[in-house]
Amino acid sequence: MSENMKLTLKVWRQKDAKSQGKLETYQLDKISEHMSFLEMLDVLNEQLINTGEEPVAFDHDCREGICGMCSLYINGEAHGPDRGVTTCQLHMRMFKDGDTIYIEPFRSKAFPVIKDLVVDRGSFDRIQHAGGFVSVNTSGNTIDANTIPIPKEDADNAFDAATCIGCGACVATCKNSSAMLFVSAKVAQFSLLPQGKIEAKDRVLNMVHQMDLEGFGNCTNTGACEVECPKGISLENIAIMNKEYFKASTKA
């Protein structure tokens, strides 16, 4: 139990997308183990502001592990050393007094740095624009929600795939910068539900096409993405997507 940890931080600083970045060293003390990792960075920023230095820019919003806005590559791991959490849910009790912590942005060609630790994940949105939806208008006249029963197992599996928060940890972790786990989560969710089956073919072809255009690498089944995924999105989704893709590309 410690309310008084001393830490050395090595933080990636980069003025903007065009500038060259580098690691800067900062010393912190009086860090409580009950703080979240981002609260520790708040303390650092307050210290920097009060000494006339520019605070470190990092993405964050909900701070409860669901919005997917926070990122950070901490000591060589996306979202840091804990499992099943985002950076905002990572707590300082995972570190020890005297530790040196390396903090870098998520790195991928498809995630250019905006400033310091903030990256542009617009490529993820563009993949979703290509097919991450069911084509149904808002009319108030769709069929009653209970008209089509869906086996509980399918509904549960679709839900598990749909819990992806789009943070990009899978890409940052993958040695190929592959976005297959992210894309497959959406493809799998819809492929398991009757509502999604009608457009299954176009969806998988269009989303994969966009994924390739954005410059993400391919999947070589190392499985690191699944380990680092804060929401435990399963590699099985990639298998489902490959099956869907194969079906779609072989049928005329």
Binding site: F133, V134, V136, T138, S139, G140, T142, I143, D144, A145, N146, P149, I150, P151, K152, A155, D156, A158, F159, A162, Q189, F190, L193, Q195, G196
Partner: peptide
């Protein structure tokens, strides 16, 4: 009055609500 339509609309969009073993919501 419009609350029921919301559920219909969301299911049609592929929102995976919790279901019972019989497959209903």
């Amino acid at each position: 009055e419009v609350s029921a339509s919301i559920i219909d609309q969301c299911v049609a969009q592929g929102v995976p609500f919790a279901r019972e073993y019989g497959g209903l919501l």
